[in-house]
């Protein structure tokens, strides 16, 4: 067990290094091919467009390490955004509305977790159901209307920069550090791996697997809540079609970062590289004037390819 996890550690470091190298080459190539692309300030500015997805990818990493999946994150983001907008419109102070939004996100995650653990259903089915349910509630509550006209201070979360850094990117970096500590330095992190590696064994080892799963999905919901807050502030409007297809981008980031889709292994550093590579690939393409429709195809291909490479790679290394 010990020797194995050691070699796994070495593998992870290697993998992250490879990904970092790929990222650097990618930026270099794009910069050479697309005039005007290489501009530190512009590249930092681009973080604005993926910080929300990045935040959720951190939570999704934990979810996937436990062997689960959460397809409802895009829909939940819409529900969070609509909650913030419409409770504000209904007269709630905006700070309270924002907290209500984050709260709804957390509750949404808890709902997923409770359903999965109580009925012992596969997360895939539950979150496919809430994928429709959450967005359905968002549409029904908002009647497909948008709310906007937030006070100026609300632009803080999504439109402010600290020096050259958009605030939400610094926020993402902070959470990367927190999640790295939690996952690799805390008992909870070990439980997460244990559940994903072998749930039955984990239960026999005295880990309350249901609590771990519940915590992981709730945490993911909380991150969706934060991301929804940032999104609403960035777009300065709340509407039910927010985050369409977001789940795919997020899952692609995580599996590209080397997290095994069947659970048991994965790292935050890897996910971070997955976030950067996928986001800057999209950024470069759009910057170069490639039609956004290609984005759908690329993400789909990367998702499948990422998992495929992981699976083959692991097969070999075994």
């Amino acid at each position: 067990m010990n020797a194995r996890s050691l070699s796994m550690d070495r593998f992870r470091v290697n993998r992250s290094m490879v990904l970092a190298l790929i990222f650097i080459i990618q930026i270099a190539v794009t910069s050479l091919l697309v005039p005007g692309y290489f501009d530190i300030r512009g590249l930092l500015d681009a973080t604005r467009s993926f910080s929300e997805a990045g935040l959720i990818a951190l939570g999704m990493t934990l979810v996937i390490i436990t062997g689960g999946i959460d397809l409802s994150v895009g829909a939940l983001l819409a529900l969070v955004s609509v909650t913030i907008g419409f409770s504000y419109q209904a007269g709630l102070p905006l700070w309270a509305a924002s907290m209500a939004g984050v709260g709804v996100g957390t509750l949404g995650g808890l709902f997923n977790g409770a359903f999965i653990t109580y009925f012992r259903l596969h997360p895939l089915v539950v979150t496919l159901g809430t994928f429709a349910l959450f967005r359905g509630i968002a549409y029904a509550v908002s009647d497909a209307n948008a709310v906007s006209g937030f006070p100026d201070w609300f632009s803080l979360f999504g439109q402010t920069t600290l020096g050259w850094f958009p605030l939400q990117f610094l926020f993402l970096c902070l959470f990367v550090v927190i999640f790295w500590v939690v996952l690799s330095r805390c008992a909870f992190g070990r439980y997460v791996y244990a559940v994903g590696h072998n749930e039955v064994a984990a239960r026999f080892a005295g880990i309350s697997t249901n609590s771990v799963l519940l915590a992981v999905y709730t945490l993911n919901g909380f991150l969706v809540g934060l991301a929804g807050l940032i999104y609403t502030s960035r777009i300065a409007s709340a509407r039910g079609n927010a985050g369409l297809g977001l789940e795919l981008t997020v899952i692609a980031m995580v599996v590209l970062g080397g997290t095994k889709i069947t659970g048991g292994s994965g790292t935050i550093v890897g996910t971070m590289m997955g976030i950067l590579i996928l986001s800057y690939l999209q950024d470069g393409l759009t910057f170069a004037g490639v039609r956004a429709d290609w984005g759908l195809i690329f993400i789909g291909v990367f998702l499948i390819l990422g998992v495929f490479v992981n699976q083959v790679f692991r097969e070999r290394s075994r």
Partner: peptide, 17 residues
Amino acid sequence: RVPSIITTLGMLFILRG
């Protein structure tokens, strides 16, 4: 060996694109 949810979810987007 790609789980079918990943394959078909990816395909959902690729084909729509």
